[in-house]
């Protein structure tokens, strides 16, 4: 009896229920806070006043001619108020900005600034108004679910970027770029900011985990060879058809000529 009572006692301390409820509240509340801060594109990324001031200097000397002295935008470039640090990191970090000349689409080119300078400009633009922040490293590792990422990619991305990210043409000289070799950070930033004519895929459309799965899928496609043999740049029927026209039909013609030729 005494053993049983002790057992009972050890099982249910009068404080147990309170502790469990408190822990539950803490976890769910904390988890919710974490989740919402991600969904709301964590506005409060800490930048110091010095960083912002340095960033503004860089902005005034390199960007203001098109985007306006107060980032309000001009005829040559859109307003940067509210585009967030992620936009700056993507556009400048991939070399698309500062743009050289106008055209249907600004191409990727050699990066013009150092990591540090890009960070300072991002700090300045982020200080103007809340916007998408540079993504958390934990969503950039290719450790997600590649199969799920592949399904999401085919539904949301493949129509423009090709089923394996080989890129494709859009209207009037615009195009969806090749995704092979694009860093996970830039892929993530492109999804949350929608650069140039790409639409935005916010966190309620594709959650950060979904985005990580897509990054995982792209990394998988980068690392693994095509199962079907040489992929001819994954361009599909045009490249494959040309190959068959030249080498397939060429081979058949060669054999026909040999069949009909007389032996020496």
């Amino acid at each position: 009896m005494s053993l049983r009572r002790r057992l009972n006692g050890s099982r249910r301390s009068p404080l147990a229920a309170t502790i469990v409820i408190a822990a539950g509240l803490l976890f769910s509340g904390g988890g919710f806070a974490v989740a919402t801060s991600v969904v709301e594109s964590n506005v409060a990324t800490a930048y110091t006043a010095d960083q912002i001031a340095e960033g503004k200097k860089l902005f005034l000397s390199n960007c203001a001619s098109c985007h306006g002295l107060n980032s309000e935008g001009t005829k040559a470039g859109p307003s940067l108020i509210g585009v967030g640090a992620a936009s700056v990191d993507f556009q400048v970090g991939s070399g698309r900005m500062p743009g050289q000349g106008s055209g249907p689409q600004l191409p990727k080119k050699t990066v013009q600034f150092t990591e540090e300078q890009i960070g300072l400009m991002a700090a300045y633009v982020a200080s103007l108004a809340p916007g998408p922040a540079i993504p958390d490293d934990k969503y950039l590792e290719a450790t997600g679910d590649a199969a799920h990422g592949g399904e999401l990619f085919r539904i949301n991305c493949a129509m423009c970027h090709n089923a394996v990210g080989a890129g494709g043409a859009l209207t009037e000289g615009k195009y969806a770029p090749v995704l092979k070799g694009v860093s996970a950070k830039h892929t993530y930033e492109a999804m949350i900011t929608g650069p140039q004519n790409m639409p935005v895929f916010n966190d309620s459309n594709l959650t950060p985990t979904d985005k990580q799965d897509i990054i995982t899928y792209l990394a998988y496609m980068d690392e693994n060879e095509s199962a079907g043999g040489y992929a001819l740049a994954s361009l599909g029927p045009v490249a494959e058809g040309l190959f068959v026209w030249i080498f397939g039909l060429g081979g058949i013609i060669g054999i026909t000529v040999w069949l009909a030729a007389k032996s020496n």
Binding site: L152, I155, N156, G194, P199, V200, F201, N202, S204, N205
Partner: peptide, 21 residues
């Protein structure tokens, strides 16, 4: 609802420039 999960979409989720399938 969202393709493929079937999660319903709130009007407030659809931000400017967004595309939902």
């Amino acid at each position: 609802t969202k393709d493929p999960t079937g999660i319903p979409i709130k009007a407030s989720d659809v931000t400017l420039g967004s595309v939902f399938h």
